[in-house]
Structures are given as structure tokens and as C-alpha cells.
């Protein structure tokens, strides 16, 4: 059964897909950035057992890990306006992604920090380093090397999670494909381009992470 791919359709809508890919990248970039900041903060607060903040971080992580992104976005986009707080779609999506990603990044950082032996911390203390100097010069560089694979996996996870942001009326790859199918019934072409769009984003990224991970392994810490 010969099925001809409608190349004209593909050519026509490629710019829209590229635009959507741009949006996905942009969302992912800010989502990852804020996730890293939130994650690092939570991890350090928990690692040093800072009272109050530490339990707050714990509650946040539970909450973030146990609710789907769709629900989080729903709350931000439809729930908050009812109490008078409105965000635009993009802000909602980035906030949702960061809220979700922050807890995953926190766990990755924490894993890295906990891999650092007590002896490292004590030898840092014994030359007179302050707590913040310890984090900056001793703990973080080592924790990053350990956490790198998990951090990379989280970036890819967040990029895939952007596929639900159409709920806040953003034209990401997923919603574009859905719309095109609805309008033109070109299911095969639309899906083909959807898959291609994600692959073009994900493959180089995961390749980059694999490379970075190998480099870090070769750097092979260990006393």
C-alpha cells in the first residue's frame, strides 16, 4: 500500500514547528535555570540541616514530586486568577516547570553532597574554612561531579515535560501537532514532524551529557 508523504504539507508547516521548538527550548532553558537554583538551595538547606528552611524544603519536595505538572499548571493558570493573581501563559509554564524540576534537581544535588565524606568536611573545617567557603570550595565542586549524570537526566526529563504546556495556551510542539491533525487530517505528517522536532532537540542534548559525564569520570576524583 503506497502512502505518499505530503511533502508540500511538511514544507509549509516546518516554520511553525521551528517556532514551537524555539518555544520548547526557551521554556526548558528558564525551567532548568530556576530548577537548578531551587534545587541547589533546597539541597544545601537540607544538607546543613538548617532549621525551619529544611522542613519547608522537605514539604516542597514531597508536594512537587507527588503532583503531575498538568495539575500544577492548572492551578497556576486557572486557580490563582480566582484569588486575583494572574500570570501570562509563559510565566505559568516556567513557574510550573521550575516547581516540578526544583525537587528533582534538589535530590540530584543532595545525592552529590552526600557522596562527600565527613573527612573532607572536617579537613576543610580544620584549616578554618567557614560553612559557606566549605560549600563553595570543597563540597559543591565534588558534588557537581557526582550529581552530573542525574542533573543531565533531569534536564531531558524537563524538556519532555514541556509537552503538557498547551494547557496554559502555549503553542508547543505537542499542541501544534494536535492542531494540525485537527485542521488538516494529516496525521502521519504532523506526527512525523512532532517526533522529528523532539529528536532534534533531545539527541544533541543527551549526546552532550554523555560526553560531559565521560569527561567527569575520567577526571576520576577519589583520594
Amino acid at each position: 500500500m503506497g502512502y505518499m508523504v505530503d511533502t508540500a504539507f511538511i514544507v509549509k508547516f516546518t516554520p511553525l514547528y521551528i517556532e514551537a521548538m524555539g518555544l520548547v527550548l526557551e521554556l526548558c532553558f528558564f525551567g532548568v535555570l530556576f530548577s537548578l537554583i531551587i534545587g541547589l538551595f533546597c539541597a544545601i538547606v537540607r544538607y546543613y540541616r538548617i532549621p525551619v528552611l529544611r522542613s519547608a524544603a522537605g514539604v516542597y519536595i514531597e508536594l512537587s514530586r507527588n503532583t503531575p505538572l498538568v495539575i500544577q499548571l492548572f492551578f497556576l493558570y486557572f486557580g490563582l486568577p480566582r484569588v486575583g493573581i494572574t500570570f501570562d501563559s509563559f510565566t505559568c509554564a516556567v513557574t510550573g516547570l521550575s516547581f516540578l524540576g526544583g525537587s528533582y534537581m534538589a535530590e540530584a544535588f543532595r545525592g552529590g553532597l552526600e557522596a562527600i565524606g565527613r573527612g573532607q568536611i572536617e579537613s576543610g573545617l580544620s584549616i578554618g574554612l567557614s560553612r559557606s567557603q566549605l560549600v563553595r570550595y570543597v563540597a559543591l565542586p565534588q558534588a557537581l561531579a557526582v550529581a552530573a549524570p542525574a542533573l543531565g537526566a533531569n534536564v531531558i526529563f524537563l524538556l519532555k515535560e514541556t509537552s503538557v504546556v498547551s494547557i496554559v495556551a502555549l503553542a508547543d510542539l505537542m499542541s501544534l501537532a494536535k492542531d494540525l491533525i485537527g485542521l488538516y487530517y494529516k496525521t502521519n505528517e504532523a506526527l512525523l514532524m512532532l517526533v522529528a522536532g523532539y529528536l532534534i532537540l533531545l539527541l544533541p542534548l543527551s549526546g552532550l551529557f554523555r560526553f560531559a559525564e565521560r569527561r567527569l569520570r575520567y577526571a576520576g576524583f577519589g583520594n
Binding site: G117, G119, Q120, E122, S123, G124, L125, S126, I127, G128, L129, S130, Y137, V138, P141, Q142, A145, A219, F221, G222, N223
Partner: peptide, 21 residues
């Protein structure tokens, strides 16, 4: 202020604990 005191007290550990990075 242990930060000040520890500058006056050097300590060496069995497991070296040099910073590997």
C-alpha cells in the same frame, strides 16, 4: 570562634583528606 582557633591548630588525618579536585 572556631574558625580563628583552627588556624592556630593544624590537624592531619589518617585518610589524608586532600581535596581531590
Amino acid at each position: 570562634d572556631w574558625r580563628l582557633i583552627r588556624q592556630k591548630i593544624g590537624m592531619v588525618f589518617q585518610s589524608y583528606e586532600l581535596f581531590p579536585h
